[in-house]
């Protein structure tokens, strides 16, 4: 933690109201991200990792704690303030199918937010969109197509281009590669890396896969059931996890070498006794 932090999350709580009772999705989470830094947040489904991202983006309302961006409190913003912040904070979601409106052309998907918010003129935003489509490897001819004519990886490139449109300083990546093929995943991860090298953008990179996080993020936060269970440099956490939860998470990840995986499978089976314990959880 330092004073130059671009994003600072302090004692964040998010509680969802359900039809009956409440559900604490995130409890007492604190971290910070410096300019040009990438922080990984890892955990299983239901761990609250996505909720943190949504709270930063204003899509989930924090019940306690503060979120500071560039020293300014952004915990609860009205729509106008959120509009203003959108040129600095952007998002890439997991599901490239759902994150692009299939009824709209790529040109509109990329330019409309900026034009509607009067952040850029129509001409300038169209130029920028073309430039970014080239940049993410699709080419300007993608402008007039519908999302339906692209594969998952290509759609994710479009989603990244949309996030890059206003030249943001922070991008929240919510499982951006977990729906993609291996080779495409590698390309997209490299695209994220290149973007960071070239523009110094910061990332909060949410994923369930530590191996993926390791490629991009020097630091990582491991979450379980709404709480942070472990944090540190990614190498430390990956190579010598301290907490049982992290150990389990790492032990469950299958290794591509069949010989090594056989040993890991034996260890996993002993760790979980019969493998049945999680079934009813």
């Amino acid at each position: 933690m330092s004073d130059k932090a671009l994003l600072r999350v302090e004692n964040l709580d998010v509680t969802y109201k359900l039809t009956r009772g409440t559900y604490k999705a995130v409890e007492n989470i604190s971290f910070s991200v410096d300019p040009g830094e990438a922080l990984g947040i890892v955990g299983e489904s239901g761990s609250g990792k996505s909720t943190i991202g949504r709270a930063i983006l204003g899509l989930a309302e924090p019940t306690a704690g503060r979120i500071l961006f560039d020293g300014k409190d952004i915990t609860r913003l009205n729509r106008k303030e959120r509009q203003h912040l959108s040129s600095d904070v952007q998002v890439v979601f997991q599901d490239p199918r759902s994150s692009l409106n299939e009824a709209k052309k790529i040109r509109d998907i990329l330019t409309e937010p900026l034009i509607a918010n009067r952040q850029m003129s129509k001409k300038a935003s169209l130029d920028r969109a073309e430039e970014l489509l080239e940049h993410v490897g699709l080419g300007a001819q993608a402008m007039d197509k519908l999302p339906g004519s692209f594969s998952g990886g290509q759609r994710q490139r479009i989603a990244i281009a949309r996030a890059l449109m206003p030249s943001p300083r922070l991008i929240i990546c919510d499982e951006p590669v977990s729906a993609l093929d291996l080779s495409v995943q590698a390309q997209i991860m490299n695209l994220f890396r290149r973007e960071q090298r070239e523009t110094g953008v910061s990332y909060v990179f949410i994923a369930h896969d530590l191996a993926v996080v390791r490629v991009l993020c020097p630091r990582v936060l491991v979450m379980s059931a709404g709480r942070a269970v472990e944090s540190g440099t990614t190498d430390e956490v990956y190579n010598s996890p301290k907490e049982d939860y992290t150990k389990r998470l790492l032990a469950a990840e299958p290794h591509p070498d069949p010989a090594i995986q056989r040993e890991r499978r034996k260890a996993w089976n002993t760790l979980t006794q019969s493998g049945a314990i999680m079934a009813g959880a």
Binding site: R54, G58, L59, Q90, S99, N101, K104, P113
Partner: peptide, 28 residues
Amino acid sequence: NELFVDAARVSGLSPFYIITRHILPRTM
């Protein structure tokens, strides 16, 4: 509940804009 609506909300677009430009085309 689609993510593109979340993306529009992150950009601070107004409910009117989201309804007319995003939801309406999907229900057309």
